[in-house]
């Protein structure tokens, strides 16, 4: 009985924080909710209205095409929802309270879970609406790989959130955290990936790149799974006598499923451990 009460006392503050955080962030949620609906309606309805724009052959291919913007939405959502988790406590100086009414780790955990619920809800709405449009065009032919894709999308959100939370743990300002994480995720990783593929070609897979890992969300839908996962396009040879130089552009399509899952988990653990460590140090 006493043990049950201890557990309840331990969980209740987290639960209350989750509810409070959800209420606090509801305007952001409404914004992303509307954006999600507009994007899915555009991809799944408006574009399909154009007769010459051919519908994909199968439900899964339709789904894969419709998921084009899921990574943008999750990326922006992660940056906007999770950027203030830790740094806002120090920005507003609540993180320096010596005798807080609630354990600071429970507070951070509650805030994180509250935001995670909202972002995962946005992803779920995206998948749900796309699935509904798919049923309209193809009938009820749900495929297990769509659920795998959703699983990877959730893992991707958790990974991005851990990355943003990590930055939030040592940066001073929410806006700086948003801008910096957006720049790194949107531009930094893409530039790095381009350089790595250009110079090292198939010798080095860009597994360091969080953006590259996100390719698993759509590539898991392909049957068979892409193999080989590295492809090259060559062009040229049109000089005198057809002897011109040849140019080759390489592209890493996707990480393998096993490696992808492993790296998702590794990055999540590493970023959270670092965030917790920096948060603890910051309070000292």
């Amino acid at each position: 009985m006493q043990r049950e009460e201890t557990i309840k006392d331990g969980i209740l503050p987290i639960y209350n924080t989750i509810i409070f955080e959800i209420k606090m962030q509801r305007k952001k949620f409404y914004f992303f909710f509307i954006i999600t609906i507009l994007v899915v309606v555009l991809m799944g309805y408006i574009l399909v209205l154009i007769p010459s724009n051919l519908l994909a052959d199968t439900y899964v291919e339709f789904f894969s095409g419709g998921l084009t913007f899921i990574r943008f939405i999750t990326l922006f959502a992660a940056c906007l929802f999770f950027s203030g988790i830790i740094c806002s406590e120090f920005d507003k100086r609540t993180g320096f309270i010596v005798f807080p009414k609630i354990n600071k780790y429970k507070l951070i955990l509650g805030k994180y879970l509250g935001n995670l619920v909202l972002v995962v809800s946005i992803v779920a709405i995206y998948y749900f609406l796309l699935a509904v449009f798919g049923i309209w065009y193809y009938g009820p032919v749900l495929n297990i790989r769509i659920f795998y894709s959703f699983g990877f999308a959730v893992l991707y959100v958790i990974m991005l959130s851990s990355f943003v939370t990590f930055f939030s743990s040592f940066l001073k300002n929410v806006n700086v955290t948003i801008i910096l994480t957006l720049i790194i995720l949107l531009i930094g990783f893409n530039i790095a990936d381009s350089f790595v593929t250009l110079f090292l070609k198939d010798a080095f897979e860009p597994l360091y790149s969080l953006i590259y890992l996100g390719n698993l969300i759509t590539s898991i839908l392909q049957n068979p799974f892409p193999n080989p996962r590295y492809e090259e396009f060559s062009f040229g040879g049109t000089g005198p006598g057809g002897m011109g130089g040849r140019f080759t552009i390489g592209n890493w399509i996707t990480p393998s499923i096993e490696m992808g899952i492993t790296l998702f988990v590794v990055y999540i653990v590493v970023f959270f451990v670092l965030a917790a460590y920096l948060f603890k140090r910051r309070q000292l």
């Binding site: 007769p51 010459s52 724009n53 519908l55 052959d57 193809y138 009938g139």
Partner: peptide
């Protein structure tokens, strides 16, 4: 059997 209409021109 089934038939999915993909588009027309």
């Amino acid at each position: 059997s089934k038939q999915t209409i993909k588009g027309w021109v």
